[in-house]
Every structure is written in C-alpha cells, then in structure tokens.
Computed example of a mutant assay.
Amino acid sequence: MIDAGWLGSPVDVATFFVVLVGFAHGIRPDLDALAAAVVALAREEDGVDGDRVAADLEVSNRDVRQYQHPVTDGGERGDD
C-alpha cells in the first residue's frame, strides 16, 4: 500500500485527490463525445457494423445523432 506521506501533508493529499476528481469529471464528456463521433463515422462506412461499435463503446443513439450528417439530395441550396 502507498503511504500518504510520500505525497506530502494531508492537505497535499486532499488537494491531489480534488485535482484528480476534477480532471476525471472534466475529461469524461470529451471522451463521450469522441465515442459518439466514432460511432457516427462507423455507421457511414460500408463494411463496418456501426451498431456493434456503439454497443462496444456504450454510446446511445441520441448522442450519435448529434454527429451524423443529414442526408441531402446533392442539389443546390437555393440561396439566391
């Protein structure tokens, strides 16, 4: 077991813990967004099972829809 004294005083240990928790909560939304974007790309690629990728990454369809491109007919936008 690691002794708390290697890091410093109990205040230093508490500060270290708070920073780690804050970092973990700050990076989690970024990882979720990245996983949803990967699933959206996988669903557009032929030969890749997007549903399996979504299950492996534990991503909901609601999150993936934010990163999917809308289907267009390839025509002009009509902005005159």
Score class of each variant (00 low, 15 high):
Met1Asp: 07
Asp3Phe: 07
Asp3Arg: 10
Asp3Pro: 05
Gly5Leu: 03
Trp6Asn: 01
Leu7Met: 06
Leu7Asp: 05
Gly8Gln: 09
Gly8Glu: 07
Ser9Met: 06
Ser9Ile: 01
Pro10Ala: 06
Pro10Arg: 08
Val11Leu: 07
Asp12Phe: 05
Val13Ile: 04
Ala14Met: 03
Ala14Gly: 01
Thr15Glu: 03
Thr15Pro: 01
Phe17Gly: 00
Phe17Met: 08
Phe17His: 02
Val18Phe: 07
Val19Leu: 08
Gly22Asn: 04
Ala24Thr: 08
Ala24Met: 12
Ala24Phe: 09
Ala24Glu: 11
Ala24His: 10
Ala24Ile: 12
Ala24Asp: 12
His25Gly: 03
Gly26Ser: 04
Gly26Ile: 04
Arg28Ala: 12
Arg28Trp: 13
Arg28Glu: 14
Pro29Gln: 02
Pro29Tyr: 05
Asp30Leu: 12
Asp32Phe: 15
Ala33Asn: 14
Ala33Lys: 10
Ala33Leu: 07
Ala33His: 12
Ala35Leu: 09
Ala35Glu: 05
Ala35Val: 10
Ala35Thr: 11
Ala36Ile: 12
Ala36Lys: 04
Val39Pro: 00
Ala40Asp: 00
Ala40Ile: 06
Arg43Ser: 11
Arg43Gly: 11
Glu44Leu: 13
Glu45Gly: 15
Asp46Ile: 15
Gly47Gln: 09
Gly47Cys: 15
Gly47Ile: 13
Gly47Met: 14
Val48Cys: 10
Asp49Gly: 11
Asp49Trp: 15
Asp51Trp: 07
Arg52Val: 07
Val53Trp: 12
Val53Phe: 14
Ala55Pro: 04
Asp56His: 13
Leu57Glu: 01
Val59Phe: 05
Asn61Glu: 04
Asn61Cys: 06
Arg62Tyr: 07
Arg62Pro: 03
Asp63Met: 09
Arg65Ala: 13
Gln66Thr: 05
Gln66Tyr: 03
Gln66Lys: 06
Gln68Gly: 01
Gln68Ala: 14
His69Ile: 10
Pro70Met: 02
Val71Asp: 10
Thr72Leu: 06
Thr72Trp: 13
Thr72Pro: 11
Asp73Asn: 07
Asp73Cys: 03
Asp73Pro: 00
Gly75Glu: 02
Gly75Thr: 05
Gly75Cys: 04
Gly75Trp: 01
Glu76Thr: 14
Glu76Phe: 15
Glu76Tyr: 12
Arg77Glu: 00
Arg77Asp: 06
Gly78Thr: 06
Asp79Tyr: 15
Asp80Glu: 08
Asp80Arg: 09
Asp80Ile: 04
